[in-house]
Design a binder for these strands. Structure first.
Lengths: 140, 140
DNA sequence: CCTACTTCCTCCAGCGACTAGAGGAGCAAG
DNA sequence: CTTGCTCCTCTAGTCGCTGGAGGAAGTAGG
């Protein structure tokens, strides 16, 4: 099988060269073979693995979780409860973040709407920031 | 006015001691006076300033923006358009993040729902990750 | 074969906003 | 005077990359 250079791997997976080396260092990608001139030499399996990684990252999975998912992907006979748990945890995490941001959005929008465009002296934005008591919610 | 030690400032603002020192280094807090024994000595103005900072951080403003807002707060005669712009930019940023997370949520939830609880071999979670073509949206 | 250009190599530093720990000094109460 | 707390500085770690320096190797054209 034709060996693939890191630059080509980068092009084929849309992952930057530096990031590929970073993934290798973090153990997401196996240490590749080297050419005589000490260059990394990859195969099709690496392309697939790296695409998996990139896709999981795009979906917001953390590197540690991707590590676990990759390990599972290599053991087709195991029950998939663990993969399910990782994905559900991630989903819950996303929900948390959305909820938190939605709360913030409300506060910041209220601030912006109250700003009358006058001087800093009477600016609601500055006032609200200076006094938490002005907020809609006790906790952010 | 009674001097305030860093620990007390921390308690009164709910900002950790290490974080207070970090804010000082970053220029958000002025370099405080020191006692004979080289300890930082604060006043009520520092309490107000630090509360402002904490509140702005809770609302997700970046340190650079907080710097600008603090500068503005100190010049009550200036028009508040700049504060307004900072807040609006932040609001737009929050909206972006919510939109992005909502998209991710959809994808991850679809993945989780399709998992039948069998083996890794037929696990949809692993499959979807391995093949971007399985996704709801082209771009995440 | 020589040159120019590109790709690749390693190592190191930086981002943002902290957080944590080492190792030591000051201070207040019993 | 001793115990225990608070405080000091300095350094390094977190997460997921990203960029640059300085150099070696590969490739294409003349």
């Amino acid at each position: 099988m034709r060996p693939i250079a890191i630059g080509e791997l980068s092009r084929r997976t849309a992952v930057k060269v530096t990031t590929i080396r970073f993934y290798e260092e973090r153990g997401l990608l196996p240490t590749p073979e080297r050419t005589e001139g000490n260059r990394r030499s990859y195969g099709e399996a690496d392309v697939r693995r790296l695409r998996f990684i990139r896709h999981a990252r795009e979906l917001g999975f953390e590197i540690e979780d991707i590590q676990a998912l990759l390990d599972l992907a290599g053991q087709p006979d195991r029950p998939c409860g663990e993969a399910d748990a990782i994905a559900r945890k991630h989903l819950a995490d996303i929900d948390d973040r959305i909820a938190r941001l939605t709360g913030l959005r409300q506060e910041v929008q209220a601030m912006v709407e109250q700003c009358s465009g006058g001087h800093v002296r009477e600016c609601r934005i500055i006032e609200v920031l200076a006094d938490h008591g002005e907020c809609l919610h006790e906790r952010h």
